[in-house]
Design a protein around this nucleic acid. Structure first.
Lengths: 142, 142
DNA sequence: TGTGCAGTCTGTAGCAACTACAGGGTCAAG
DNA sequence: CTTGACCCTGTAGTTGCTACAGACTGCACA
């Protein structure tokens, strides 16, 4: 409970711990404009609160879903505008979904070829390795 | 035919053109030790032949299959050793296959979530965007 | 009051795997 | 003899972090 509501005065390490984010990455996200610059204590230490935590969780979650930092920046703009961003957000996600699917297709092609050649190698006692032979063949023959 | 047998005295641009490799990448592969340093003309121009082309094709093809440059270096060592590398080559490929499969699994998880939230957004007229809400939720809830 | 240690700050350098210049040299055609 | 296309080198940029070095702060314990 106390863990969820209105926390203030967090230092970087605590924010990182609470979100599971790497310590340095927090500062990096601030540098590239994904997190707002937090207020500072008298001695210059960053002082985070729940809004920072919420925003960082958003970024981390979007990264888990494979969004690039540019895409996340775009999403955050839409979130901030609050105008009726649902259609635009959906479009960003749909584009990203297409990219993810293309990557899956790529990897599946790789997987198929690799599985085949590994199988052809059998117990590895062949004099001419079929895998090596495959790799010396033309590209685009996949 | 003339395109396949014993070509000599190729310049970088021709090697790149023949293999479909980016011009700068040829030099990069040489720098990181994936291609041997070719002989030079009197004025210092690189002069490639079919063996370079063959090796470059190997590298490019392995890259297409997602092997890292380190893995390719390892494969090329095994190719050069020629001792009976089939078993070792198969092991390198098997490890890589596992990595590829893990990536596919990752991307499929992303795809599932993205597909769901995009569908939830429907025609994009909802006041509270379900995609945004999802992104603000806990991590590891995928 | 001192001292030690953990935390924070900044800037910068490193990783993969390229890609793209800038600023010069070379070479063949017209 | 000039023009343009090629070649050379080294270095800087890309993406998304991660890890340091060197200095400062802040708190507990003796």
């Amino acid at each position: 409970m106390g863990d969820r509501a209105g926390v203030t005065g967090m230092q970087r390490a605590e924010l990182a711990r609470r979100t599971g984010c790497n310590l340095e990455t927090v500062r990096y996200y601030e540098k590239v404009g994904l997190l707002p610059e937090p207020p500072r204590t008298a001695s210059g230490y960053r002082s985070y609160d729940s809004t920072h935590e919420r925003r960082l969780r958003f970024v981390l979650r979007a990264r888990e879903l494979g969004f690039s930092l540019d895409e996340i920046r775009e999403l955050l703009c839409l979130v901030d505008e609050r105008d009726r961003p649902c259609a635009e957000v959906r479009d960003v996600a749909a584009v990203h979904l297409a990219v993810v699917r293309a990557k899956i297709a790529d990897l599946k092609r790789m997987e198929r070829v690799l599985k085949d050649v590994v199988a052809q190698c059998g117990d590895g006692t062949l004099p001419e390795c079929p895998l090596i032979e495959t790799l010396f063949q033309e590209r685009n023959a996949i």
